[in-house]
Amino acid sequence: MATGGRRGAAAAPLLVAVAALLLGAAGHLYPGEVCPGMDIRNNLTRLHELENCSVIEGHLQILLMFKTRPEDFRDLSFPKLIMITDYLLLFRVYGLESLKDLFPNLTVIRGSRLFFNYALVIFEMVHLKELGLYNLMNITRGSVRIEKNNELCYLATIDWSRILDSVEDNYIVLNKDDNEECGDICPGTAKGKTNCPATVINGQFVERCWTHSHCQKVCPTICKSHGCTAEGLCCHSECLGNCSQPDDPTKCVACRNFYLDGRCVETCPPPYYHFQDWRCVNFSFCQDLHHKCKNSRRQGCHQYVIHNNKCIPECPSGYTMNSSNLLCTPCLGPCPKVCHLLEGEKTIDSVTSAQELRGCTVINGSLIINIRGGNNLAAELEANLGLIEEISGYLKIRRSYALVSLSFFRKLRLIRGETLEIGNYSFYALDNQNLRQLWDWSKHNLTITQGKLFFHYNPKLCLSEIHKMEEVSGTKGRQERNDIALKTNGDQASCENELLKFSYIRTSFDKI
């Protein structure tokens, strides 16, 4: 039985969820670079991206490699990797027998973001014989899940209580170790020597080791999670996991709180800001991140802002960003909400898709409305799209047979046209069989910064309504002859009103 693990408890099935942008060198404390989270699957090609990484700022997932063999891993080693800020997950990587050479110096898994409450997941690794993470000293947050690894031993010899604050939620089941077939031998045991430290858990006094050649490092209890030197002297209180010299914040392997210019500090002093819960960055760093993602459509890219001495992905609820200094300031009234469309555009074809934009005031991208039916549609669209004030790209209304009016965009005031449909149009209306009105132009103002209007096959939309939009939106004169079809717009509506004058002759039985 794995020490510190839980057996036999019912657990939810383990679901495996399925960018080499360097964020800056980590400095003297770390020998390499800070790398983003990685999802490495199918083959070993991307694994080489770990070569210079000291910190993975995010998670590391290595999974679904069915053609790899043990010899493929023999020359692979990433000794610079010290810390993973989120979680480490391995799933069905064939041929991998140990992690001792792959990650010989991995010391800390912070667990800032977890995989279903777990910071370390080893699942269905069919050839893994031992973990071998002999320098792993601290899992700051989260638990361990090690399950269905039929060859995995050296679990009962690990004292997880020396690595985690609590072992109650560890789930370590259905491994070879369960069948008591392992016969784990710690260093020196074969020669009758006791080389590794022994600890007591559940009444068992057991030597602690990761492999037959690597003991588990056990520091004096007084050192807590700070770690200790090879001689057993406690590291500085700002260290986490390990250090090369005692009581020196510049000799830590990793930091308990924050890293700044080669030393570990309790908090980031001005003019620095907390970033990702582990390091200090200056304003320029946060500003660069903001600008890199301002026009990016890459998933996970955030326009970072500053709030409460932190550089964070977005302002919290009730705050909006001051564009001059990136500071989050309290909103006066309802907060603006910028919604970034991942692929640059979004099609609204149902109430469900409209709900995804609920509360958005600025759309960074283009909207395509293609709704053919739905219950209580006008009210639903207004509830979900009615706060949109600005669209950076274009607005396209296409084959939306259920629409009679666009009044559900009740606050839309600006279409920038930074991206144009077919390279020309910022407003595009095609084949809307029941569209009769755009907006009530006596109450609604709309500016279209650039781009043209396109109207074709809107049989109940009168040309007068379209011409009014040209005047109000500032697009009059931009359109070419064929942009607004004269014969297919309003051709099934009563669009022309003329005053009919009647004269009559009164007659009676005795007068003409």
Rank of each mutant, 00 (worst) to 15 (best):
L240A: 12
C182P: 04
C196L: 11
S244R: 13
T329I: 05
R256Q: 11
E314K: 12
G203S: 09
L102I: 01
N202P: 08
L90G: 00
K80D: 02
W210Y: 04
A156G: 11
S324Y: 03
E49A: 06
L120W: 03
T250W: 09
Y154M: 07
K148H: 15
C243T: 00
S284G: 04
S225F: 13
L88I: 06
R113V: 01
L76F: 12
L50S: 01
D288Q: 14
L76E: 01
F73R: 04
N135I: 00
Q303F: 05
P36G: 15
F275W: 13
G142Q: 00
C153F: 01
P316E: 01
C209K: 10
C293D: 09
N282E: 07
H212V: 08
E130V: 10
M137Q: 08
L128I: 08
F66H: 15
G227S: 14
C255G: 00
T229E: 04
N42P: 03
G192M: 11
Y272A: 03
I139L: 10
D75I: 07
T194A: 12
L128E: 01
L76M: 09
N149H: 02
T157H: 09
E97F: 13
P79Y: 10
G333W: 15
V265Y: 02
A190N: 07
E124H: 15
G188D: 14
C235S: 00
C286M: 01
G227V: 05
K129H: 13
R92W: 02
F66A: 15
L120Y: 01
N322L: 15
L332Y: 01
Q216F: 07
P31N: 15
S161G: 10
C153V: 01
E71G: 01
G241N: 06
P187C: 08
S244F: 15
F275M: 13
S244Q: 15
L47W: 15
C53S: 00
V34F: 15
G318L: 11
G262F: 09
L29P: 02
F103M: 12
S161Q: 15
I122W: 00
D248A: 05
H236M: 02
C328V: 03
E180Y: 10
L136T: 02
S324T: 05
V253E: 05
R256C: 01
I163N: 01
N308C: 01
M83R: 00
N195P: 11
F115C: 08
S317T: 13
H307P: 01
E57P: 00
L29M: 15
L102T: 03
C243I: 00
Q287N: 06
N308R: 08
L289E: 06
P316F: 05
L102G: 03
N242C: 06
R297P: 07
V206G: 12
V108Y: 03
D247N: 02
R263K: 06
I84T: 00
G241M: 03
V93F: 07
P31A: 06
L289R: 06
L90E: 00
D39K: 15
Q204R: 04
T45A: 06
E97Q: 12
G318Q: 08
S143R: 09
C255Y: 01
E57R: 05
N202G: 13
D39G: 03
D288S: 04
D39E: 14
A156N: 15
T85N: 04
R145Y: 15
A190P: 10
H290A: 04
L106V: 02
N43I: 04
K191R: 11
S317W: 04
N295P: 03
F73I: 12
F78Q: 02
S143D: 13
C280F: 01
S323Y: 12
S284L: 06
E130R: 14
N322E: 00
D177N: 14
H214E: 07
T45Q: 03
P270M: 13
H48T: 06
V265W: 02
K193Q: 03
L81K: 00
G227L: 09
P246V: 07
K67R: 12
L332E: 15
N195H: 09
T140G: 05
H226M: 14
K193V: 02
A156R: 08
H302P: 07
F78Y: 12
W278P: 00
N105P: 00
T68S: 12
E130I: 10
C301I: 00
N325G: 15
V55S: 02
L90P: 00
G192S: 10
S324R: 09
Y304H: 07
H307R: 06
G203D: 02
V200K: 02
N43F: 06
F285I: 05
F66L: 13
G183Y: 05
H236K: 02
Y94R: 13
R113L: 12
T320A: 11
N135E: 02
S143A: 11
C228P: 03
D86Q: 14
V305M: 11
R279P: 00
D39L: 06
L81Q: 00
P70E: 07
D72H: 04
V253P: 03
S77Q: 14
N138S: 13
T250I: 07
E49L: 11
L327P: 15
P197S: 07
K224C: 05
R74W: 04
F66Q: 08
L155I: 13
K294P: 13
M125G: 03
L289A: 07
D165R: 08
G95L: 02
R256D: 09
V34N: 06
I82V: 13
M83A: 02
R141M: 04
H214T: 09
N149A: 08
I163E: 00
